[in-house]
Design a protein around this nucleic acid. Structure first.
Lengths: 220, 220
DNA sequence: CCTCTTTTGTTGTAAAAACAACAGAAATAT
DNA sequence: ATATTTCTGTTGTTTTTACAACAAAAGAGG
């Protein structure tokens, strides 16, 4: 685990905690880690988990397939990001989504019971981690809400406009690059890929946007 | 505020804390409360807030209107529920939705800075409140994710099936009552009311479901 | 360099949704 | 009790999407 200290100290969960203190906590939280090949599942819909997951390297998608196989990507997890915490905290309910490795990756696991109960008086940084967890949860909440505002638009074009506007704001520029390819973007926005592709073309023709692969520019 | 102790002690935020201790905390957290008439806004998109809101009585909707006036209801807040906490915690970003009183209501406000920083060593129940807040956030997260799974379905029927199934599971019965009227349900699922109404009728004709007003039964 | 695979764009058709307009039922106010 | 407003269901038309099938472009691997 030591070789990942560099990653861990830059995560939201351990923000503001020194490398030394993180190392101390790793034992105290009985942290473990595991490698996954591209395509493998970290957890699946219906399982119960008791640990917060932190991605040490690679890429993971949180997604769900419905009965008929329609896939919808809930979120993309990148190095240092945390996931699964909503199900791990007092693991009261089964996981509602799959977590799947998009590339080879390594995941660290932190037991929530320990985080919430052990050494609450002795560790000064214990409180900090809980606070970090809280802040991270509010960030996720806001991200989910924002996705909801995109996806609740009626037409494919409106969804695209909503998503692209948000990405533009995020990068403080009318020119930006997105992390999704076409199929992934379509899954994220819950629309048909080909219909979306054709809508993007229309919007380009009409001079609303310009794009080349994953690079977009919003015009006028 | 005293007359609302009965409500507060049954909220997620003060779960496990005695009435006496809650009363002690009210001062410590510099709690305030305010009455709102039906239709008034507790907060609006774009504002900045620094307090967690707890609904003492009445009903509130978290909703957002887009540029063209399409309304989408993010969630319904009932007596004892908490809202705004994702924006109040280290109020780093502007509120993305409106909170509007659906009926006359009373809202309590708890300053987050105080909750997170003041008297962290003296109050035993302080830690409990933070833990409660954390658990509540994970619940909200899961609710948002579940709504996403409904809304990301392609057709109105699939959305209805997904929503009704979830409600059925929630009440552990194939017969249940929903809190939304037709327009609200349509807004919640981001579909057209009349189209949804007609789809519901079709499903009834086909023998999939039965319903009368807000009372639904899932068949076969 | 060539082959195979993946990604992206295009088009036509069938299905579904949005929209609009209206009528009847239910709830609320007077 | 009656009038008025709100809610719900219905229908036809227009717009949009999903779907399918294909072609072109880009990337990966030998």
């Amino acid at each position: 685990m030591k070789k990942y200290l560099d990653v861990l100290k830059r995560t939201k969960l351990f923000s503001g905690i020194s490398e030394n203190d993180i190392q101390l906590m790793l034992g105290c939280l009985s942290a473990t880690h595991k490698d996954y090949k591209k395509g493998e599942y970290i957890f699946r819909q219906g399982e119960y988990i008791d640990s917060i997951c932190v991605l040490l390297n690679g890429t993971v998608h949180i997604q769900s397939d419905d009965y008929w196989g329609n896939r919808s990507i809930i979120s993309e997890i990148e190095m240092g990001d945390m996931f699964g915490e909503s199900y791990a905290v007092y693991g009261s309910s089964a996981v509602l989504n799959d977590a799947v490795a998009i590339s080879d990756c390594t995941v660290a696991f932190f037991n929530v019971q320990r985080l919430m109960t052990v050494c609450s008086n002795t560790c000064a940084f214990h409180t900090t981690v809980i606070r970090n967890l809280l802040i991270a949860l509010t960030h996720k909440n806001r991200a989910l809400m924002q996705k909801l505002t995109h996806i609740s638009k009626r037409t494919t074009r409106e969804k695209l406009v909503s998503y692209l506007s948000a990405q533009s704001k995020l990068s403080n520029s009318n020119h930006f690059t997105i992390a999704f390819n076409r199929q992934q973007l379509a899954d994220f926005l819950s629309v048909d890929r080909s219909a979306m592709s054709s809508e993007l073309s229309k919007m380009k023709k009409e001079g609303l946007i310009d794009f080349d692969k994953n690079s977009f520019t919003l015009l006028s």
